[in-house]
Simulated scan of single mutants.
Amino acid sequence: MARADHLDPDSSHWHWLAVDLRVWRLERNLSQAELGALLGVDISTVSNWESGSAKLPKGRAEALDRIWKTRGHFARLRNLAESSHNPDWFDQYTRYERKAEAIRAYSALALHGLLQTEEYTRALVLSGELVDDVDQAVEERMARQQVLAAPRPPELWILIKESVLQDPIGGPDVMRVQLDHLINLSHRPNIVIRVVPRSLGAHPGIDGSFTLLECDGVDHSWSEAVGGGRLVSDPTKVRACRVKYDRIGADALSRDCSRNLIAEVMEAMQ
């Protein structure tokens, strides 16, 4: 998100919330430090809320309404921002991804971006993703994978629907390299890859891919959709997503069995 002086409240409800927070604070002649003291946070947290670089939590919005007697204004505005489309969502998601301590994802239609080879990514982009510059889109996705080479990379737990392994994205040659890449990644100590078998049939992840991010002690969820996705930070909704992830994982193959299945699919890819 942008700095406070570049926020656009007309196009983003999150920007609107950030601007209102600053306006209402200044109307009460409060400094950021004084507002932080009222809400039990430090000045940098308030600054991040007002600049839009962090989202005002639901509990803090409700606290503001009580303290300032704003009749639910901030809670309603936050709910509106949470439920509406926001063009900044994916940018914010990648910010969280870069500093996440743990990433848990379920891949229902395509492999998670952190696991993709360059040619697999290029095939996906060329097949239908609406971008102006294919090379740039591929480069940006590859750059996200730098988090896996960091001195302290995140714990990465990935559940993959079996059909994702079998779809020949980019053709058999590209897919064989991709599957071999998955096997290599699966041997890293911080990466767990497990396959959800086709025989499972209907399961909690049938409605699509999603990702859970643990970042600075706060959990967020990202649900993919056509043309974008949705980032959620509300604890109740994130908790429901975590329960769904755990239920899918309960029926997934073990790490070793998953690795063997990936190898079998790779060998059979024609």
Rank of each mutant, 00 (worst) to 15 (best):
P9W: 05
A202L: 14
E50N: 05
G228T: 08
Y106I: 01
F74W: 04
E82H: 01
D5K: 12
T211S: 11
Y93N: 02
M1E: 04
E50Q: 09
D251F: 01
L182Q: 06
L111W: 06
N190F: 10
S44V: 02
D219K: 10
E50H: 05
F90C: 07
F210C: 06
L109N: 09
G72W: 06
A18G: 02
V192E: 14
V226R: 12
G128C: 07
P151R: 08
P168I: 04
R122F: 04
E62S: 07
S233P: 05
E101K: 13
S53F: 11
C257I: 05
L261K: 02
L80E: 15
R188T: 04
N190K: 12
P153W: 01
S31K: 09
S11K: 12
M175V: 03
L148W: 06
N86P: 05
K99C: 09
P57S: 09
A268Y: 00
D246F: 04
A100F: 02
L21P: 01
H112K: 04
A81H: 05
G170N: 07
I160W: 03
A263H: 07
K69W: 05
Q136W: 07
F90Y: 13
G208L: 12
D8M: 10
Y245K: 04
S199R: 15
D234P: 03
H187S: 14
T94M: 13
S186W: 08
K237V: 14
H220E: 14
K161C: 09
A75C: 02
R198L: 15
L21D: 06
A105E: 07
A33D: 15
L253Y: 00
E27H: 08
L38P: 03
K58L: 13
Q32G: 13
L39A: 10
D135Q: 10
L148E: 06
A81M: 06
I169D: 06
S44R: 11
D132R: 11
R122V: 05
D65N: 09
S209G: 02
R22D: 12
I248K: 02
L35Y: 04
E140S: 10
N48E: 15
P151G: 06
E50R: 08
H181M: 06
Q32D: 10
Y96F: 13
V125A: 03
R194K: 11
W16N: 14
V238Y: 03
G229L: 13
Y120I: 06
R3V: 13
L159Q: 02
W222C: 03
E139C: 04
A75I: 02
I158E: 07
S209Q: 04
L130R: 12
N260I: 15
P154D: 11
D234F: 01
Q32F: 01
G217N: 02
R95T: 10
E162W: 08
K99I: 14
K244H: 02
R71D: 15
Q92V: 12
A61P: 04
